[in-house]
Nucleic acid binder design. Structure first.
Length: 406
DNA sequence: GTCAATTCACATGAAAGAGACCACGGTCTAGTG
DNA sequence: CTAGACCGTGGTCTCTTTCATGTGAATTGACGA
C-alpha cells in the first residue's frame, strides 16, 4: 500500500505537466489585456475620470449577463484610475463589495459594517443598533477629505435579499457628508433589475448606465486563447478544443467565465488521467462534472429539513409518472418527518422551500390552476437521472435513511 | 348553449415569535501588592 | 486595587409559524332561446 502510494506520487512527478500557470484560469485573475471590452472600459473611464479633477463622478449602473466581463472591466478601470490618483496624490479610495458573498453581506447591518471595516473601523458582527453602525460609517468616511468609489457587485442579489432601502440611504449619503464624496457603481447580472426598484433609487443610481453585451463565440475563442497561452504549456491542448469550448459557452449566453472554468476542469481531468493532451473527451467530462459538482455541493449543504423536502420530491419523481404537486410532496414529507422524529414544518414553509429549490435550479416549478381542483405548483426535476441517483444517495446518507425501494 | 358565480387547493404576503448570537455595562470574585 | 468572570439588557439574524388574503379555471347552476 505504502509502495503503491509512493509509486503513484513518483509517477505523478514524472508525468509531463499540463499547466504552466494555473492562476490564469482562476476566476479572480486579471489578465494584462482585456479583449473586446474596449468600448465599455472607455465608457466606465469617462464616467469616473472627473475624479481626477476632484469632481464627483456620476453614479454608474452597469448591467449585463454573467461572464461578460463586467467586474473585470470595472476593476481594471478603477485600478488604473486609483494608480493615477496615487501618483498625483489625490485622495481617492475604491471599495469593492461583492454582494453575492453570503455571510459577508446579506443584511443592511452587515453591508454598512463591512463598509465601515474597509475604512478601518472595527465593527462587531452583531449586537449594535443599525443606525449606530451608520453613524460609525459616516464618521469614518467624513473624517478626512476624500473621494470614494463604492462598487457594489451583484447588486440585484442584495436588493432581492434586503430591499432597496440601503441603496436609498447610500445614494443620499452625500448630502450628509461635509468633506467626502461618494460615488456608487452598481453591477447587476439581471437586465430587468431596475424595473422593480424604488424610482428615487433608480434615478439616482443610474445617472449613467452601461450595458455589457454577451460575447459571441469568436470573442470567447479569443479570450480563451489568451488565457490558455498563459495557463498551459505549449502543445497540451488538442487542436480545435478551444473552438469547441467557446462554442459550448456561447451556446449558453456567452459566458466567458464558464468557458474558462470548463477548460480548466477539462485539463484537471486530463492531468489526473495522465494524459499529455487535453481533448474533446475531457471537455465533455468536464461539462458533466461541473454541473454534477454544483448540484451535489448545493444539496449536501442544505439544512436537514430542506433535504427531507427534496428527498420527498425525488422519491415522488421516481415513483410517479405524471408531474408532482405541492400537496403530495407535503404529505410524503410529513410522513417521513414523523417517522424520523422531526417536527414537520408547516405547509406554508414547505411551499417556500420548494420555491427555493426552484431558484437553485434543482427543480423547475410552474404555478398551474386545475380549475375546480385548485391551484398548485407543478414540480419537475431538472437534474439528469444519473446525478439524481447520486443526489438520492447523498440525501439518504445525510438523513440516515434506509434505501426505499421503488 | 351561455354566462356568471362558486369552489378548490394551494400561492403569496405580512407580521410576529423563538432561539441563536453578540456587545455593552454593571456587579462580583479572586488574586496581587 | 484591579483584572477577569459572570450576569442582564438590548440589539440583530435566521428560520418558522400564524393569520390573511389572493387567484385561475373547472364546475355548477340559473337563465334564455
Amino acid at each position: 500500500m505504502k509502495h503503491g502510494l509512493r509509486n503513484y506520487l513518483e509517477n505523478f512527478m514524472d508525468k509531463e505537466p499540463i499547466f504552466k500557470d494555473k492562476m490564469a484560469l482562476q476566476s479572480n485573475y486579471t489578465p494584462e489585456f482585456i479583449s473586446h471590452r474596449d468600448e465599455q472600459i472607455e465608457q466606465v473611464a469617462s464616467v469616473l475620470a472627473p475624479v481626477l479633477r476632484l469632481e464627483k463622478p456620476s453614479n454608474l449602473f452597469i448591467y449585463g449577463k454573467t461572464g461578460t466581463g463586467k467586474t473585470l472591466s470595472v476593476r481594471y478601470t478603477t485600478d488604473e484610475i486609483c494608480q493615477m490618483a496615487k501618483e498625483k496624490n489625490l485622495p481617492l479610495k475604491v471599495v469593492y463589495l461583492n454582494c453575492k458573498l453570503k455571510k459577508v453581506v446579506d443584511t443592511e447591518y452587515r453591508i454598512i459594517a463591512q463598509l465601515a471595516r474597509e475604512f478601518g473601523k472595527d465593527i462587531p458582527p452583531t449586537g449594535l443598533p443599525t443606525d449606530e453602525i451608520y453613524k460609525i460609517f459616516y464618521s469614518a468616511i467624513d473624517k478626512e477629505r476624500q473621494f470614494i468609489v463604492l462598487i457594489l457587485d451583484e447588486i440585484d442579489q442584495l436588493v432581492k435579499k434586503i430591499g432597496d432601502e440601503v441603496l436609498y440611504n447610500l445614494t443620499r449619503i452625500n448630502a450628509d457628508l461635509h468633506q467626502s464624496q461618494i460615488t456608487i457603481i452598481g453591477i447587476s447580472n439581471n437586465l430587468l433589475f431596475t424595473d422593480h426598484l424604488d424610482p428615487r433609487v433608480k434615478s439616482s443610481l443610474s445617472e449613467e448606465e452601461i450595458l455589457f453585451p454577451p460575447y459571441n463565440a469568436f470573442q470567447i475563442q479569443n479570450i480563451l486563447k489568451q488565457r490558455v497561452e498563459v495557463a498551459f504549456l505549449p502543445d497540451t491542448i488538442e487542436e480545435g478544443l478551444i473552438e469547441k469550448c467557446a462554442a459550448y459557452a456561447a451556446r449558453d449566453h456567452g459566458d466567458a467565465r464558464r468557458a474558462i472554468e470548463l477548460i480548466r476542469v477539462a485539463a484537471e481531468l486530463a492531468e489526473r488521467e495522465g494524459s499529455a493532451k487535453v481533448n474533446i473527451k475531457h471537455l465533455d467530462m468536464a461539462e458533466d462534472k461541473i454541473e454534477k459538482d454544483r448540484i451535489i455541493d448545493l444539496v449536501s449543504t442544505q439544512p436537514k429539513q430542506h433535504q427531507l423536502v427534496l428527498y420527498s420530491i425525488i422519491h415522488l419523481a421516481n415513483t410517479k409518472k405524471e408531474s408532482i404537486i405541492t400537496g403530495e410532496v407535503y404529505e410524503i414529507y410529513k410522513g417521513l418527518a414523523g417517522k424520523m422524529g422531526f417536527r414537520p414544518l408547516t405547509q406554508r414553509r414547505v411551499s417556500d422551500v420548494v420555491g427555493e429549490f426552484d431558484m437553485l435550479g434543482l427543480i423547475s416549478v410552474r404555478v398551474i390552476s386545475k380549475g375546480r381542483y385548485g391551484r398548485t405548483r407543478e414540480i419537475n426535476m431538472s437534474i439528469v437521472d444519473q446525478t439524481k441517483d447520486k443526489v438520492l444517495v447523498i440525501l439518504e446518507e445525510d438523513l440516515g435513511l434506509e434505501r426505499t425501494e421503488g
